[in-house]
Design a protein around this nucleic acid. Structure first.
Lengths: 145, 145
DNA sequence: AAGAGATGGTTGCATATGCGACAGTTGCCG
DNA sequence: CGGCAACTGTCGCATATGCAACCATCTCTT
């Protein structure tokens, strides 16, 4: 009969796990810096990978471009990032963190780090590493790119 | 220095994996039935577990209660589910799928099933099972419950 | 039995979101 | 070269969302 079991449906489990593990953390940057999830994600990308364009962030982070556009505007207003024209493409803008942005990123990264350690402890480091690896496999082949 | 690596941050990977694996599927029920993500999730719960109250769905699915409230209203308007008063608690309402709701659920479940098979193939069934198991461990201890 | 506090569900309001349309730019093919 | 498709980022609009306030009901303590 090919029954459907919600408890085994990977997208469902992934959504729950993502939601469950992101909530506590998101409350932190929300309280401390008034940042949204999209804003934190953009900061995290720039803090980790350096200068990126908005559309690169869209692709890497599975975010809508209008969402990124507005989140970037907010971060710019808060003086956390700066735009500069791309040398090779006049449509695109390179985004980089300001000094203030770097500081904020450093704080959030430290928090994220300790948060991550908690999760790893809970799973055991072997399984945590397994999980990360499998997730990367699952993510890589992005449908439309 | 305790560096922060976004590529190893589990909440990030989980969000990307969830988003990546949910997108194609969500396009389907959106197109076919005009349903939102929350609505599909509610249908999936009711289809799998039978009668539930809204708050049980909130807890299981990591959904805000106002989101559920409105999604349920929409599903009721579409005649996909029905409310009946709980025998033991006059505040609560038991939600169940209507016949039409069951049909829609059956269709979506079949689609989900084949979708799930694709993912499992891609990972290999061992790793897919590992993943599901680890995710369940990660989810279980829900912060505020 | 009474009141405090928790819980179920709805709703108002401000904000966030997705989609589609748009203007400007680029790259490619004939 | 000329033009057309693809791409970048922004914006308007309708809708979805989160939060807090709210009413009704339940539970627990005393």
């Amino acid at each position: 009969m090919n029954e459907f079991r919600l408890d085994d449906f990977l997208p469902y489990l992934l959504n729950n796990a993502a939601e469950s593990t992101s909530r506590a953390f998101s409350e932190h940057y929300r309280r401390e810096y008034g940042m949204t999830r999209a804003q934190w994600r953009i900061m995290a990308h720039l803090g980790t990978f350096g200068a990126l364009t908005a559309s690169e962030i869209c692709t890497r982070g599975f975010l809508e471009k209008s969402k990124v556009s507005r989140a970037v505007a907010g971060l710019e207003d808060a003086a956390l990032l700066r735009r500069q024209p791309s040398a090779h493409d006049r449509r695109a803008e390179l985004l980089t963190l300001t000094d203030k942005g770097q500081q904020v990123h450093a704080d959030l990264a430290a928090y994220a780090r300790s948060f991550s350690d908690t999760l790893t402890d809970r799973l055991g480091s072997d399984r945590a590493a397994q999980l990360a690896e499998i997730l990367r496999d699952l993510i890589d082949p992005q449908p439309g790119d």
